[in-house]
Amino acid sequence: MTRLESLASCFQGLIPATLFTCSRAGVPNAAFISHVEFVDGGRVALSFQFFNKSKANISENPNALVRLVDPDTSQGWRLRLRYLRSETSGPVFDRMALRIEAIASYSGLKGIFKLLASDIYEVLSVEMIED
């Protein structure tokens, strides 16, 4: 499997990622997300900013897929994920809160973007996107 560490450019947040989830009833959901945080060689964190369908789906079905783009090479990557837990404090949360604040500031969404939790996911696979 491609090492997560080698995708450092993808985690800069220059090009938004896409999060795909699915409800227990089998309804898929797709959402653009502002940031994917590298945690360690086997985990990433996604920002939880609003109570939305993605969050509801993950609470009942932990399977998720994230598509990332490396802004340096244009190569896309597909991460298959499994939700582990949410953190509302600690170093990962603090790093993400700062990043979200910066994104909100330059995208004119200050006061709307606010980190509520860092959702921690196990990375099951890393796949190169075909197109």
Binding site: F20, N63, L65
Partner: peptide, 18 residues
Amino acid sequence: IAIQLGTRNDRLEPNGVR
């Protein structure tokens, strides 16, 4: 604009494409 299509398989695992 940006468009992505999401689906899911019979194990309720999501998939998606540009």
